[in-house]
Design a protein around this nucleic acid. Structure first.
Lengths: 103, 103
DNA sequence: CATTCTTTTAGAAATTTGTCTAAATATACA
DNA sequence: TGTATATTTAGACAAATTTCTAAAAGAATG
């Protein structure tokens, strides 16, 4: 089910990319539509798109001259869940209390 | 309740730091204990601790010569939730379907 | 106080990242 | 085909990041 999470967290590290994802949560948009919401150049934005695509956080579909970007929410959720150890609870050979040292 | 999320996501972007957090989910540890689990130098690790502290993802407590690191799970959860829009659902002036463009 | 152990700070070097402009590619349409 | 629109690729450059070694700082103990 899941892929490498490193590209996902790298992708989430940039505020521009997080804002792109946030916009796409409201619905798909073309590259140009997204571009109007930012002050950086289109090539810079395109670079961010590439990073999001590499992390599989967004999917693309060509529609005439436009390219429509949509969110892949599953990857986002998997990364979060994995980080919070919802899936792999660990070996539990160390204590769980979290209120002090092991000594 | 919440602070700036940029330092949190920057902190999560590095695999070493994510592994530190994962360890701390199992229970608090001293800097030295954590260091045994990694191959990088202690100063490098200390640098990562600083970034995690700046993001408020970990808390520290001195215990004699040792410094004990513990996870601040709340910050982690808030960042995740915020990203998934659990808290701030957006303006809903754009469509929610996520299956195509707005055109 | 001197020594030892633990951890951090300082400063430097190599790599990565985010941004730009200029140019290329892809599609639509007269 | 030629032109306009939409988007990406190429290449360069400044800033940020990760790592290291050397040295300093904090605490326990003889």
């Amino acid at each position: 089910m899941s892929q490498a999470q490193q590209p996902v967290f790298k992708a989430l590290a940039d505020p521009t990319r997080r804002e792109i994802l946030k916009r796409l949560q409201q619905g798909s948009e073309t590259a140009g539509e997204i571009a109007t919401a930012f002050t950086i150049s289109k090539p810079s934005l395109s670079h961010h798109f590439n990073i999001l695509k590499a992390a599989d956080l967004v999917r693309t579909e060509r529609r005439g001259q436009h390219i429509v970007y949509s969110l892949n929410a599953t990857v986002l959720q998997e990364a979060m869940a994995m980080l919070l150890d919802v899936f792999s609870p660990g070996d539990s050979s160390r204590q769980q209390d979290n209120d002090g040292s092991k000594t």
